[in-house]
């Protein structure tokens, strides 16, 4: 996709995230993921929830905070080449509705997981690391910051 006229986004990579249909699809996909995780034989419901949460969080981290650039041939002369998917949302504008949804959704998933696992300490310790992995990079102070030289160039 080549974009370059004034009527088109210079970088269409993140606009699909703004659609309400995407929000529904995303929620549906996570429900499906939980269904799949619960179907794994010989595991308890608690493990199923932990599996859902961790798979979701790690996937979320990879898609939003690890992969950079855009698959489209943008006319922005490489402006977004170094930015992660999350940083490209709304051209870097913070606390937009899209960002709020994408921050709150994993939080609710985390709370649900704790609730259905009877607030066990083991579950907490096994779910907090992956939760923080995708939660901290979403904060505004982490915008365009790179820790430990990962993904720096």
């Amino acid at each position: 996709m080549q974009v370059g006229t004034t009527t088109v986004e210079s970088n269409p990579n993140a606009i699909y995230l703004e659609s309400r249909y995407f929000w529904i699809a995303y929620s549906g996909a996570v429900c499906f993921l939980h269904l799949m995780c619960s179907c794994v034989p010989f595991i308890t419901a608690t493990t199923g929830w932990l599996l859902t949460l961790n798979v979701h969080n790690i996937g979320n981290f990879i898609v939003f905070h690890y992969l950079r650039g855009s698959p489209f041939g943008c006319s922005d002369q490489g402006e977004n080449r170094q930015l992660t998917h999350w940083e490209q949302i709304n051209h870097g504008k913070q606390w937009t509705n899209t960002r709020k949804f994408l921050i709150i959704f994993p939080c609710i998933l985390f709370l649900m997981c704790q609730h259905y696992c009877d607030y066990s300490s083991d579950v907490l310790f096994q779910s907090v690391p992956s939760f923080l992995l995708q939660f901290i990079p979403k904060q505004p102070f982490m915008h365009a910051k790179r820790l430990f030289g990962i993904n720096k160039y």
């Binding site: 051209h91 870097g92 504008k93 913070q94 606390w95 921050i103 709150i104 915008h143």
Partner: peptide, 12 residues
């Protein structure tokens, strides 16, 4: 808090 907060510009 974030449900209450208003949308702001990018950092910087």
């Amino acid at each position: 808090k974030i449900l209450m907060s208003k949308s702001t510009g990018s950092p910087g």
